[in-house]
Nucleic acid binder design. Sequence first.
DNA 1: TTTAAGGTTGTAATGAATACAAAAATAAAA
DNA 2: TTTTATTTTTGTATTCATTACAACCTTAAA
Lengths: 142, 142
Amino acid sequence: MNTKIKNIKMYLESNNVNPTYHRIVIFQYMENSTRHPTAEQIYTDIKKEIPTISKTTVYNTLNSFVKNGIAEKLNIADSEVHYDIPDNGHDHFLCINCGKIYDIKPEYSKSNIEIKSIQGHKITQLHCYYKGICKSCRNDKK
Amino acid sequence: MNTKIKNIKMYLESNNVNPTYHRIVIFQYMENSTRHPTAEQIYTDIKKEIPTISKTTVYNTLNSFVKNGIAEKLNIADSEVHYDIPDNGHDHFLCINCGKIYDIKPEYSKSNIEIKSIQGHKITQLHCYYKGICKSCRNDKK
DNA sequence: TTTAAGGTTGTAATGAATACAAAAATAAAA
DNA sequence: TTTTATTTTTGTATTCATTACAACCTTAAA
Ligand SMILES: [Mn+2]
Ligand SMILES: [Mn+2]
Ligand SMILES: [Zn+2]
Ligand SMILES: [Zn+2]
């Protein structure tokens, strides 16, 4: 077992997630991914490594990650939920042409500003989503 | 026909939406609502006034409003899409206890700041969602 | 009054996410 | 070790929001 997995095990444990094989693999996949995958994408990809895995396990695992604060749901697209490992409170940009979701570097982020409450409501989360045409799609049209 | 409906007719026309009876009633309902209703809620309420209306008409109408920029989808909650009449680029607060969605006054809004592009991506929309416990729910617990 | 175009309706289909119970794996107790 | 309890995983069924589609209705031009 390499040190990365050992670290993941410890990380999951310290966040009240029992580090089973499936959960470690899913977390590792999430950490290495830059795509903000959907549950379906995670399932499809991890099936190559663990052909017996069930889609329910993917959903259960992701829900457990979210409940314990080590993964985040992105309600940025209309149909499916995307998942992310929250990291420095960065924002997201969705390309309405190709569907890709990009990270917005924290220095440009609106959501790393500390606000405790607004209009009497206690704030625990702030999500900022940009939408438009991504750099790559803009270049393609030229 | 009162002047309000006349104005709605003109407003829909000027936004490339043919002002049929159903569309006028739905738009009027949206304008008078502060609840950021879902398609289901709109359907249920308008059914009282127009018992023969179909849910498909509600969806068709809302999609047409969104396409023509006179209504906005809020992907703030996990399951259902909420709809809003965009107005001064205000933000939204979702109470994770009672589910109510509140408007955040433009002076506090993060989304009325003018940014044209970021990291090479052309921005056309910016959505900021706050989540937490609303004022009313906080008072109830005391 | 025909014809065409657009609008509405009801039902069927899609698809993401959850519910649930049986089977399997792991941990604790005897 | 064997037995028992707890947790995890799996497969299938179900739910529910949204869309697809075709028949029907309404309105306006021809
Ligand atoms: Mn991200
Ligand atoms: Mn609003
Ligand atoms: Zn793109
Ligand atoms: Zn509340």
